[in-house]
Design a protein around this nucleic acid. Sequence first.
DNA 1: ACAATGACCCAGT
DNA 2: AACTGGGCCATTG
Length: 103
Amino acid sequence: MKEKDSFFDQIRAQVAKIPKGRVSTYGEIARSIGSRDARKVGWAVYGNKDPKIPCHRVVAKDGNLSEKFSFGGYLMQKQMLEAEGIIFNDEKKVDMEKYGFSF
DNA sequence: ACAATGACCCAGT
DNA sequence: AACTGGGCCATTG
């Protein structure tokens, strides 16, 4: 990792600002920091693995979870989100109407 | 500097 | 609804 965490730092800040019991989308975060690149958001959280970065609170735009999550799969993330008080609409989807957080 | 990659998003078919 | 192709932009070799 470099010292210049330019995007990294911004992404990390935004993700850390997500309230407990809420989820945010890659696209929202990406645009929030001034970029259009949602992929970098995922990269940042994935590479860092910092406890301050609740990756499980970050989902795709539709609330859809990713199959390639680090913790052991989307199932792990699902459990963590449920622990935050989030109810899943589908096997891999969160209720963005209720839990979708915007900056 | 270039090519390939990526936990995504959007539009068209 | 599923697949395809393009975009976006930082990271890595």
